[in-house]
Design a protein around this nucleic acid. Structure first.
Length: 270
DNA sequence: CGCACATCCTGTGTGC
DNA sequence: TGCACACAGGATGTGC
């Protein structure tokens, strides 16, 4: 679920299941899931709390409680589960929230993702550091250029910096640059006005389409094997090294930037 | 401040 | 088949 569109799709699908429900109790089955907090902290603070609202900030999912907030980050593989009763035998879950109707689970077999409790969202450093949300109305072309346009860094890792624009990850940054026909190695401060216009358009378009793809079919919280299959028809370059560019036919290249893979077409991205 | 790198974890795919 | 190693849709902290 890692990037903003996936988390947004999760928030939308989760809303009708948990909004207005009350958390009867919390059980932490794997302490890594609540790191650096303890299971006692979670249990004490969420017991009896009503889930008022489900929202998203960047790649973070927030469950606003009557008092406090549960903040989930899925990192690579984290996911939410929902069962009408208890989870089926053998289901691996890291954090279990027993609701007055149903059970909400958080699981990440790699144990990189976390779900933590805080007094309020402003008390969470990671959330305070987030830049303008990629899906908000504040994400204008001007705001975009201002956030990135003076940096000497390559544009691909810049797009992924959550403190500038919140919500774009490794997949969509490559996809966005392919659509805008911009080389991922171009420096932020070397982009022209016309590049900014194309790039902003590409960000909005790719993210919008991704939300639609991530919601069709919608997340299935009952199936631990479920993932976002709707994305297949959207991706143009990601993980297509060596395959022909969908625009010009030249081979897609993969390079490393900040230790992450970037995919692009050398011929039509300049 | 920017940058390169290690770290938190574990599973899967690939090449020898 | 066994084994080593690269790699994975992320964020943070360290040292230079």
């Amino acid at each position: 679920m890692p990037e903003a569109p996936e988390v947004e799709a999760v928030a939308r699908a989760l809303r009708p299941l948990v909004e207005g429900r009350t958390i009867r109790s919390a059980r932490v089955l794997h302490s890594a899931g609540v790191r650096p907090q303890t299971s006692a902290t979670i249990a004490r603070n969420v017991r009896g709390q009503r889930i008022e609202n489900v929202s998203r900030r960047g790649k973070y999912l927030l469950l606003d409680l009557a008092s406090g907030v549960l903040v989930a980050h899925f990192k690579f593989d984290g996911q939410l589960l929902f069962f009408d009763d208890a989870p089926p035998r053998g289901t691996h879950v890291d954090v279990l929230l027993k609701l007055d109707r149903g059970t909400l689970g958080f699981v990440d077999q790699r144990h990189l993702g976390t779900m933590t409790w805080h007094l309020n969202a402003d008390a969470v450093p990671a959330l305070r550091k987030l830049g303008v949300d990629v899906m908000s109305r504040e994400f204008t072309s001007a705001a975009f250029a201002k956030r990135i346009g003076e940096s000497k860094k390559p544009i691909k890792p810049l797009l992924m910096e959550q403190s500038r624009i919140a919500g774009i990850g490794n997949i969509y940054s490559s996809e966005i640059l392919w659509h805008a026909q911009i080389d991922p190695r171009r420096r932020g401060d070397r982009l022209a006005v016309d590049d900014w216009r194309r790039l902003h358009n590409a960000v909005v378009k790719v993210i919008q389409r991704a939300v639609e793809c991530c919601s069709n079919p919608p997340p299935n919280f009952r199936d631990t094997e479920w993932w976002f299959t709707g994305l297949d028809k959207l991706l143009r370059v990601y993980q297509r090294e060596g395959e022909p560019c969908r625009r010009c036919g030249n081979a897609i290249r993969r390079i490393q930037q900040d230790g992450r893979s970037s995919y692009f077409c050398v011929h039509c991205q300049t």
